[in-house]
């Protein structure tokens, strides 16, 4: 997005094309909506430095400086929540990367076209289904009394497990179901990068007697490294997003200890509990950290792979 350099400077001073007022009219709705729903709420971030009372509003509520933040870092629950968030999102990143990349490499080796497209049709589907629906499905599958998974365990002579009610099992289930939902669709970006690999490399390797597996590890994987770097650095910005939708649709009070993350905490304690200032302070902390990480991530992605979104 830059000035049209082909137009000489002198010409630029001439009047704009007929009806350019129309352009302002066209961009107006987007500007108005963004102002109301993004910029006005940003000013509401001031609440994080107040003890906000709904009946007093932002203008009259008392200012408390950094008290909310102090509370945030001293309150054992919020420290647990920040730790849960970092842990879940880091593990999701690692497991997601491995499963997605592994699937991309393997599906790439399927030469039978019908099989390939059929498999893709099935594995892409979960990406488009909401966590409300998937939550309903997994709650059923994992139910200790009638869930299919526990029936299987019992058939194998094991005791049934209340997976979604156990702090030991909740996080692994979150990680597993997230990987299950996204490994297929996430592979698209790698498959797109694979198209660009020079076939001569494979031919040369074949002549040298390298098997499929060797070709995969020595040609395919290395050519994906720029894409992997870009994906990793972009995910940096989301490190405090551990997946509100998923966790909210799977969790229950039994697993708050292991599964409560920043966003679910803000929703429950801040919004539903009416602690607006405290909730906003946590939200602000999260946004600022997220913003810094996004900017750092994009900078690295640009340096490493020349990736630019704007």
């Amino acid at each position: 997005m830059g000035m049209n350099t082909a137009v000489p400077a002198k010409k630029m001073k001439l009047s704009r094309t007929k009806g350019s007022w129309g352009l302002y009219l066209m961009i107006l709705p987007a500007v108005v909506l963004t102002t109301i729903f993004v910029y006005v709420p940003m000013s509401g971030l001031l609440m994080a430095f107040q003890d906000y009372k709904p009946y007093l509003g932002i203008s009259k509520s008392p200012w408390v400086g950094l008290d909310q933040f102090k509370f945030l870092f001293e309150y054992p629950d919020s420290i647990q929540v920040i730790w849960n968030t970092l842990k879940i999102s880091f593990l999701k990143l690692v497991i997601g990367m491995i499963s997605t990349l592994g699937f991309a490499l393997l599906i790439n080796e399927v030469k039978h076209k019908f099989l390939r497209t059929s498999v893709q049709t099935f594995v892409f589907l979960p990406h488009f289904i909401s966590w409300v629906v998937l939550g309903g499905i997994f709650i059923q599958l994992l139910n200790p009394e009638y869930g299919l998974v526990n029936q299987l365990l019992q058939a194998l002579g094991q005791e049934p497990v209340f997976f979604l009610g156990s702090n030991h099992w909740f996080v692994p289930i979150v990680l597993l179901t997230d990987a299950w939902k996204e490994f297929g669709y996430g592979s698209i970006i790698y498959l797109a990068a694979l198209v660009g690999i020079n076939p001569a490399l494979y031919e040369a390797a074949q002549i040298d007697g390298a098997g499929k597996l060797k070709q995969m590890l020595n040609i395919t994987l290395p050519s994906l490294i720029p894409t992997i770097c870009v994906m990793l650095t972009i995910s940096l910005g989301g490190v405090l997003n551990a997946g509100f939708d998923q966790i909210f649709n799977l969790y229950n009070p039994l697993v708050y200890e292991s599964g409560d993350i920043i966003d679910t905490f803000v929703y429950r304690i801040g919004l539903i509990g009416g602690n607006y200032s405290f909730g906003t302070a946590i939200g602000l902390f999260k946004s600022v950290v997220g913003l810094i990480l996004i900017l750092v991530g994009y900078r690295i992605a640009y340096k490493v792979a020349g990736y630019k979104i704007f």
Binding site: V7, T34, P41, M42, T280
Partner: peptide
């Protein structure tokens, strides 16, 4: 340019800031 709007860069900045930062759940 000649076919565009004055303050173009201001508008771009306006949308990009909105993309990168927001007030979060409670202020919204």
């Amino acid at each position: 340019g000649r076919n565009g709007i004055a303050g173009y860069k201001w508008f771009v900045g306006f949308f990009i800031v909105a993309l990168l930062f927001n007030g979060g759940m409670i202020p919204t």
